[in-house]
Design a protein around this nucleic acid. Structure first.
Length: 176
DNA sequence: ACGATGATGAAC
DNA sequence: TTCATCATCGTA
């Protein structure tokens, strides 16, 4: 039983969505091929006050998708080299998103790191602002895997030391 | 430990 | 227009 996640799945508090995303699948249709990853690590960026979030300095051309409707992708370019992918959560106008940091292939190989994940799934800036779904070529599937709360480890976010106390919040979620 | 490599946002 | 910074990674 495979279900495709729709907008209402993402239109909820960001931490709630993040917990439910672990064990779900990110699926890409690229040049006729299906590329699949089980989501094993995510990171929450929540609200205009979050100093680690791109939205903390207001809406710009780049981060505009974060302020949009839930279920859209926010993809951005960083360090001159890498693309990183997020899915937008919460109500329209409230900037929040979940960054995908790691996944596992159907063969059990771990793809660790947000830029390695986008490379594996052939994701780049052309997908930013697009709604998750088959038409977009990138969507979420529920394969019926149940994750127990005790199998989720929460810790501080990675690479955001500049964000002061916001860097310490347990907004990183990993599947154990 | 460091360089790659370029868009972004803030300052000037 | 210039400049520091950056939700990172591969190589050393």
């Amino acid at each position: 039983m495979v279900k495709i996640l729709s907008k209402d799945f993402f239109n909820k508090p960001t931490i709630t969505v993040a917990k439910k995303l672990l064990g779900k699948f990110l699926v890409r249709r690229y040049r006729g091929k299906r590329i699949v990853l089980m989501i094993t690590e995510v990171e929450v960026y929540d609200g205009p006050q979050d100093k680690a979030s791109h939205a903390s300095r207001g809406k710009t051309a780049r981060n505009e998708p974060m302020f949009g409707e839930a279920g859209r992708f926010y993809v951005y370019f960083t360090y001159g080299i890498h693309w990183l992918v997020n899915v937008v959560t919460g109500p329209k106008g409230y900037p929040a998103a979940i960054l995908f940091r790691a996944g596992r292939t159907l063969e059990g190989k771990d793809i660790i790191g947000p830029a390695r994940l986008t490379k594996y799934l052939k994701i780049d800036g052309k997908l930013t602002g697009k709604l998750a779904g088959r038409r977009t070529g990138l969507w979420f599937e529920d394969h019926g895997i149940k994750i127990r709360p005790s199998h989720i480890k929460r810790g501080p976010r990675v690479g955001v030391d500049y964000a002061g106390s916001w860097a310490k919040k347990p907004y990183n979620l990993k599947l154990l």
